[in-house]
Design a protein around this nucleic acid. Structure first.
Length: 424
DNA sequence: TCTGGGGTCCTAGGACCC
DNA sequence: TCTGGGGTCCTAGGACCC
């Protein structure tokens, strides 16, 4: 009966989102930070990536470079942290596991957001309120929940929930709610599409919902057309409960100071390759290709700029970190040019496929191949048990001086024994 | 002095083929 | 003036997300 294309009559998809997540994590362990302006910085203490409401009220915007807002922070007593991803990752798992008790279906969308299927409940909004209360009590993290017939409407409702009571449901026919959301704040419409939409008179979510499909398609292609339909209550994005395997894995860092020599770049790159290979191993995947890139600091217009990348496909897929490191270094040497102050180097592992699907090759079980594999396994085992300093390749170096700045990190309260908070 | 990192999808255009 | 017409495959780049 074409049920797939029918509209749900009531808002049953929820988007639960942790408020100012990284800041909230820090506040759980330092309650004195409540009601004070707090921000968390990105790697290298570069940009503000999380802000408490009090910090937002001071005009500190998302992604603001720290050196530009430092004065404001000092003048207003803003508390500033480096990011502590071990803490945030662990808190995220706790929040997710509590939420999973409240819904038969959950899609973990990002470190601080999940979509939930509340179709089974007579009163989804009441269910959401209860979940919000329990997550707060069990984890200390405040969340906001938006409900809609589609993911896009749930996202939109979530924006409204952030301003108001914490739980809001928005129906596709609720013109008043849709009219209150700027078009570039709709999920899937960013700054660029926002500009193009405003040019054709589409200024709000309501304008977008009511515009003819042909207009929307000509501005933003099939992607925007899906968003358009979702605003009208027609579901185009389903809940994805089991994460799709990643297609690429990227590892890269900006340097704490400019790097000029090939040797330093190689050492950094070797570390990123090992990191990427480790993540790939965790997903039980193999790479069919690899790409290496490097770039100077694009903000330094006074300095000569250079960026380049090179990739290579393998004859057979691999996860061997030693092979990956040696190939990566070869690619780096091919694009390295002396005389530049480099800001960043990185690696992408491409075309990932599950290891179980790998085609066996003729040399698979040669004594050499088996020895090589057991060496890799041993190194990974030691690294897993004793931290990354327990075992590493010589190419990774020992005391690199290009490591990133992270001067204001809090203890890893929940994931490291020596950092456990002490109750006195 | 100081400007994050890690993803996805789509499209346009070039190379190549018959 | 006119310069064939499609296909496919690949890649780079643009747009978005958190």
């Amino acid at each position: 009966m074409g049920r797939r294309h029918q509209r749900d009559t009531s808002p049953v998809i929820a988007l639960a989102d942790c408020n100012n997540f990284y800041v909230s994590c820090e506040r759980v362990f330092q309650p004195s930070l409540e009601e004070r302006p707090v921000i968390v910085l990105s790697n290298n203490d570069g940009c503000a990536v999380a802000r408490s409401n009090e910090a937002k009220a001071l005009g500190i915007s998302m992604g603001a470079p720290y050196f530009q807002i430092r004065r404001t922070c000092e003048n207003h007593g803003v508390i500033v942290f480096s990011s502590n991803y071990e803490l945030y990752g662990d808190m995220s798992r706790r929040v997710t596991s509590v939420m999973a008790r409240f819904a038969p279906g959950i899609e973990v969308y990002s470190i601080d957001e999940s979509f939930l299927d509340l179709r089974a409940f007579a009163d989804p909004l009441a269910r959401a309120h209860e979940m919000r209360r329990i997550v707060r009590r069990w984890t200390g993290i405040p969340i906001s929940i938006g409900l809609g017939q589609t993911k896009t409407l749930a996202k939109l409702a979530n924006r409204l929930a952030k301003k108001g009571s914490g739980c809001v449901a928005v129906d596709a026919d609720d013109h008043l709610a849709l009219a209150g959301v700027e078009v570039e704040d709709v999920w899937g419409v960013g700054r660029r599409l926002g500009i193009r939409l405003r040019r054709v008179g589409v200024k709000t979510a309501l304008d977008l919902a009511l515009a003819p499909a042909s207009t929307i398609r000509s501005v933003g292609g099939v992607t925007l057309e899906r968003t358009h339909r979702e605003l009208g209550g027609l579901r185009c994005f389903e809940l994805e409960q089991s994460p799709r395997p990643r297609k690429n894995i990227c590892s890269s860092r900006s340097f704490g100071r400019p790097v000029t020599t090939l040797e330093d770049l190689e050492e950094a790159l070797a570390n990123y390759v090992v990191t990427a290979a480790r993540r790939m191993r965790g997903e039980a995947s193999l790479a069919h290709g690899i790409q290496v890139f490097l770039t100077t600091n694009r903000f330094r217009e006074d300095l000569p700029q250079y960026r380049n990348s090179r990739s290579l496909s393998f004859d057979e897929s691999t996860a061997d970190p030693m092979r990956l490191v040696s190939v990566a270094k070869r690619l780096l040497r091919a694009i390295y040019r002396p005389g530049y102050a480099y800001k960043k180097v990185g690696v992408l592992l491409l075309d990932l496929t599950p290891a179980c699907e790998r085609q066996m090759t003729f040399f698979e079980h040669s004594a050499k191949a088996v020895r090589r594999q057991s060496l890799v396994d041993a190194v990974e085992e030691v690294a897993a048990g004793y931290g990354h300093s327990g075992a590493f390749l010589a190419a990774q170096g020992i005391q690199p001086d290009w490591v990133m700045r992270r001067n204001r990190r809090t203890p890893r309260y929940t994931t490291c024994w020596s950092d456990l908070p002490v109750a006195e």
